[in-house]
């Protein structure tokens, strides 16, 4: 546990020790505002809620989370510090969890930084704050899944740009696997049971439930199992490729 906390703290200090984190937070918050008020037609809808923000958030995550996760392992491999880290008395799983947790906490800070949106809708009307809280927690869960995917992709390469592109591609498939764009393609080559299976893997499908303020047990199990699966993939990739 000490090792996980130490690695997580080091990563967080690494984020906030450079201007990159602050630039990220400012741009993410601005883009959240654009998604809510401009793209989401907030004023034209005449409803004081954050539905428009949460409907665009997965697409913001698609770009912003790989930008955070791409450095997690690729940088360690490029600079050679992975050799130092992995020869300290720390297991690959502890190292993977420590880095992933740092990324999730960073995204948590980014979500907290969007509180002016919440303050605005509360100033303008009487939104259901319970639904908004559930949405924020659901968003953090989705960020945790995408961060686990991004971290695993980052362990595949020492090039951060490649890590970013791979993360966006895999995250896109995971987010959209319940939409016609993916399901129609799967339907051509696979039976209905596989189509249903692929649809159930979609982050967007589960996020849609959560956006309505509903938290089905299936969605909680989905989030937890996806996180565990991608962290496991990260450990496997790290164990095989750390010295390449």
């Amino acid at each position: 546990m000490n090792s996980i906390i130490a690695i997580m703290s080091r990563e967080l200090k690494g984020y906030f020790g450079t201007p990159v984190a602050w630039v990220f937070l400012v741009i993410f918050t601005l883009m959240s505002g654009v998604a809510t008020f401009y793209l989401g037609n907030f004023f034209a809808r005449g409803t004081a809620d954050l539905n428009s923000y949460f409907s665009y958030l997965p697409w913001l995550f698609l770009v912003f989370i790989p930008a955070v996760s791409m450095r997690l392992w690729a940088e360690e491999r490029k600079s050679g510090t992975i050799e130092l880290l992995m020869t300290l008395p720390v297991s690959p799983l502890e190292a993977v969890i420590g880095k992933w947790l740092a990324g999730v906490i960073f995204m948590g800070v980014a979500l907290i930084a969007t509180f002016p949106l919440w303050a605005s809708v509360n100033y303008l009307g009487n939104p259901d704050n319970g639904v908004i809280i559930i949405n924020y927690l659901g968003s953090l869960g989705m960020a945790a899944v995408l961060m686990a995917i991004g971290a695993a992709m980052s362990a595949l390469t020492r090039n951060q740009v490649i890590a970013f592109v791979l993360s966006v591609a895999v995250s896109f498939v995971v987010i959209t696997s319940g939409t016609p764009i993916v399901l129609d393609a799967v339907r051509v080559v696979a039976p209905q049971v596989i189509v249903d299976l692929v649809a159930s893997m979609s982050a967007l499908t589960h996020f849609t439930y959560i956006a309505q303020g509903i938290v089905p047990m299936a969605s909680v199990i989905y989030l937890v199992s996806m996180i565990c699966f991608w962290l496991f993939v990260n450990v496997v990739i790290l164990s095989i490729m750390k010295a390449d």
Binding site: I5, R10, K13, L84
Partner: peptide, 24 residues
């Protein structure tokens, strides 16, 4: 390790504190 790799953005003290912390 060869080339003594270390996290460049860390101070020497921060680096040693991190190693001490991981080692408990």
């Amino acid at each position: 390790p060869e080339g003594a790799p270390a996290w460049g953005e860390m101070t020497v003290l921060g680096f040693l504190k991190f190693c001490a912390s991981v080692r408990g």
